[in-house]
């Protein structure tokens, strides 16, 4: 870990301005991801801006009948919120499927969205990794890639985004609210927040330097049966091999988003239009451009089967 300077931010705007005004600065929230990466010198910020003191830890109802989740709301609190449990069950379930109780007590909403990949080569600074060291190559391609992406990947990077929460939020059409260093705010649909790796896997979101997430807004409840199914090698405390967030309406229409298959939560609205034609058609659309490795080819049938199971259960 490199030495760094540290400050406590006093307001969201000041935090963003400080981040933009200081070279190589980063926000720190729960620290459950950032600190691990700093210890291994995968992240080497020179300055940390602690956002924990900002009053962004509330869940409020919006004028539109939805919920605004503060960026600092802890995963545990979000999962337990009565309104979330009642109206956004998929989100509560996804959160509880992630990490461990202790980690969820620290992990924040914004930190969870921005957590970095769990590709093992990303974690070993001796090995090539374009995401960690642009231009060094991708050791996962041709290496151990059982966890890796089967769709939307590139020649430069085949990593997945590890968040469960984000997958549920994608199904809920959440909107990310930010404040920028100049004090301006903007709203980013979650579909646009995370990027595909392309030639620059080191750039993971559309957030600009210094841009602070202040909240995540959920549109008004859409009802339906909401499910989150996470498939993994052990029963708890493991990242998803494949996960499925689904919201199924009584008329058979619905939404599905998948985790563990791509560099971002994977949802294609056009695929949902195929729901009446059955799972095969949906999967065909979701994975039209799939490209797997020998190690992760199983994810394609697994995703389809998991989707089938979730839809079947949601309809009964």
């Amino acid at each position: 870990m490199r030495s760094f300077s540290y400050e406590r931010a006093t307001s969201p705007g000041a935090a963003a301005a400080a981040a933009a005004g200081t070279a190589n600065a980063k926000f720190i929230a729960g620290g459950t991801n950032l600190l691990d990466l700093m210890k291994l010198e995968i992240e080497t910020p020179a300055h940390l801006i602690d956002v924990n003191g900002l009053a962004l830890d509330r869940i409020e109802e919006t004028a539109e009948g939805g919920l605004r989740i503060g960026a600092l709301v802890r995963n545990t609190d979000l999962a337990a919120d009565a309104r979330v449990r009642r109206d956004y069950g998929v989100l509560s379930r996804a959160l509880l499927a992630g990490a461990s109780g202790q980690l969820r007590n620290k992990a924040t909403t914004a930190g969870n969205l921005l957590q970095r990949t769990r590709c093992p080569y990303f974690y070993d600074t001796n090995l090539p990794c374009n995401k960690r060291k642009p231009g060094s190559g991708c050791a996962a391609i041709g290496g151990f890639s059982r966890q890796h992406a089967v769709v939307g990947a590139s020649e430069a990077c085949i990593a997945t985004h590890p968040s469960d929460m984000a997958v549920a939020m994608r199904a809920l059409d959440a909107v990310i609210e930010t404040v920028r260093p100049d004090g301006g705010t903007r709203s980013i649909p979650i579909a646009d927040l995370h990027r595909l790796p392309g030639d620059n896997p080191e750039i993971e979101t559309v957030l600009q330097p210094g841009e602070l997430i202040t909240a995540v807004a959920l549109p008004k409840p859409v009802g339906g049966t909401q499910a989150y199914r996470k498939v993994r090698d052990r029963a708890s405390y493991a990242f998803a091999l494949v996960s499925v967030a689904a919201i199924v309406q009584p008329d058979g229409t619905g939404r599905v988003a998948l985790g563990g298959v791509a560099h971002k939560p994977w949802r294609i609205e056009a695929a949902e239009a195929e729901l009446p034609r059955g799972v095969k058609a949906v999967a065909a659309r979701l994975f039209a451009d799939a490209k797997s490795t020998r190690d992760n080819a199983y994810k394609l049938p697994l995703a389809e089967r998991t989707l089938a199971a979730v839809l079947r259960e949601a309809r009964t």
Partner: peptide, 24 residues
Amino acid sequence: VVDKRHGLFVNHDLAGYEVPVHAD
């Protein structure tokens, strides 16, 4: 897991090398 090109066990932490947890 052996990376046969670089010659190491790749999953060298407790997130990558899974052992049973209580739920198992």
